Simulated assay, not measured.
Amino acid sequence: MISGEDLKAALPTEPVRELIETIDAPKIASGKVREIYDLDDSVLLVATDRISAFDVVLPGGIPGRGLILTQLSHFWFEQTKGIAPNHIIPNEGEILCNTLKLSRDSQLRSMAVRKLKPLEIECVVRGYIAGSGWESYKQNRTVCGIELPAGLQLASRLPEPIFTPTTKASEGHDMPITAEEAANVVGRDVFEQVRDISLKLYDFGSKLAAKAGIILADTKFEFGTDADGTIYLIDEVLTPDSSRYWDAAEYKVGSSPASFDKQIIRDYLETLEGWNKTAPGPELPLEIVQKAQSRYLEVYSKLVSVV
C-alpha cells in the first residue's frame, strides 16, 4: 500500500491520456479510460487519466486520476480478500516490474488480472437514498422493486442496506432491474451469492470509511467467473468512480453533500451554454481540474490512513 503523501508525490504534472511507453503485449481494447492488453494467461488493465462526463470523453484529463483509482482498488482488493477472492493475479508485481518492465508510473496505474467471464449484471448496494434511487423513490417509494418506508428525504439513511442490481450496458447507461430480473440473467444460485457478497462488502467498506470520517452512501461491484464457476470480485472496487462517498462532517439529511468524485466536473459542465453533451467535449479550466484531482487524492489519503 502506498501512502497518500507518497502517491501525491508520484502524480504526473500533465494528464496521461495515451501511454508513452510501448507495452510488449497485444492490445485487446481501448476504453473510455483503460487500455487493455492480452498477457496470454492473464490480462493487463492500464488506467489512463482520461475522464468522461455524460458519456463523452473530455479533452485533457485529471493528472494522476488513473493512478489514484488503481491504487485505491488495490487497497480495497487487499482489505476484502477475506470476503471474496478477486481478479488480481498472485505474481502481479513480478509481471509488471520484471516481465513487462513498466515504468513506475505505469506500474502504479496497472493491474494484472485473471481472465474471467464477467457477469451480465452490476451489483449496486445502497445504504442511503440518493441519485437515481432518490428519483425512483419520489415516484413510487420503491427502488428496483424494493418498497421503502414513507417519509424518507434526500440522503436519508436506509433502515438497512439494499441490493439494487442493474443491467450492464456496453453503450449508454445501465438500467435498474428487479432481483427477479437479475436472477433470470445470471441464474438464481449465482444471483444469491453475489447479492450476499455485495452486502458484506458494503458493510465492511462502510465501517472502514466511517473510521476515516467518510460516509459510503452507495457503491457498485462487478463479478466474474472462471471455468469452474468460482466467483471473483473484478474491475474496480470502492473507488470514488464506482461509489458515492460523502464527507461525514458535511452530511445533512435533505441535501446531498458534495461527493468525492467527478461531480465537480459534471457541475461545471452543467453551467455551460452551447454544449449539448455530445462529442467533442469542452476543455476543462485548470481550476476545475485541480479541484477534481484534490478530491480524488483526499478520499484516497483518508481511507488508507485508517488501516
Rank of each mutant, 00 (worst) to 15 (best):
A150W: 06
Q153G: 12
A155V: 11
R157W: 00
L158E: 05
P159K: 11
E160Y: 09
E160G: 00
T164G: 10
P165M: 12
T166V: 13
T167N: 13
K168I: 10
K168W: 14
K168F: 13
S170W: 03
S170E: 15
G172K: 14
H173R: 10
H173P: 05
D174W: 14
D174P: 14
T178K: 15
T178R: 15
A179I: 07
A183K: 08
N184D: 15
V186A: 06
G187M: 06
V190L: 04
V190S: 02
V190P: 00
R195M: 12
R195E: 13
D196Q: 14
I197V: 12
L199G: 11
L199K: 13
L201E: 08
Y202A: 02
D203H: 14
D203S: 15
K207V: 03
A209Y: 09
A212K: 09
A212Q: 10
G213N: 08
I214M: 04
L216A: 02
L216H: 02
A217E: 06
D218I: 01
T219G: 01
K220N: 04
F221S: 01
E222G: 02
E222Y: 03
F223A: 07
T225V: 15
D228F: 02
I231T: 15
I231P: 08
I234M: 12
I234W: 10
D235E: 10
T239N: 00
T239R: 00
P240H: 11
P240R: 09
D241K: 07
S243C: 03
S243H: 01
R244G: 06
D247H: 03
D247F: 06
A248P: 00
A249T: 12
Y251T: 02
V253F: 07
G254F: 10
S256W: 03
S259A: 07
Q263Y: 04
R266H: 11
Y268M: 00
Y268S: 02
L269A: 08
L272V: 11
L272Q: 13
K277R: 15
T278P: 01
T278F: 05
A279M: 12
A279H: 13
P280G: 14
P282I: 02
E283Q: 03
L284F: 04
L284A: 03
L284K: 01
P285C: 02
L286E: 11
E287C: 03
I288W: 07
V289R: 08
V289M: 10
V289E: 07
Q290I: 04
Q290R: 13
Q290P: 01
A292T: 15
A292R: 04
S294C: 10
R295F: 12
R295G: 01
Y296F: 14
E298I: 00
